[in-house]
Amino acid sequence: MNLDNFHKAFENKARLGIMSALMVNDALSFNDLKELLELTDGNLASHLKALEKFEFIAIHKEFIDRKPNTTYQTTAAGRKAFEEHLAALEELIKNLS
């Protein structure tokens, strides 16, 4: 069984959730993600930081009405890793049945 494509960045459920949401949206704000995944500020921030370290997500900071607005996007590397992770998951379950 090939587990090479099981990326350790996605071992955590919160990170899996963040990537899933960003895969189907161009960009989401911190608050969008917080509401969607029902995580605390600190928890979400640390997982975002981890994904950023893997260079799977990119951060954009801008100001709207003088208020800071941070949005998150997937990177090409992030999308590729996530798709491989999904394919590996599917493969595993297919082999099972």
């Binding site: 899933s20 189907v24 969607l36 995944l37 999904l86 998951l89 379950i93 099972l96």
Partner: peptide, 20 residues
């Protein structure tokens, strides 16, 4: 193994919820 199935379902749920 159940863990992986749960992961897939979770991914699906989040994708659905975040785009609709």
């Amino acid at each position: 193994m159940n863990q992986h199935l749960n992961d897939l379902q979770e991914i699906r749920k989040i994708m659905e919820k975040s785009s609709r």
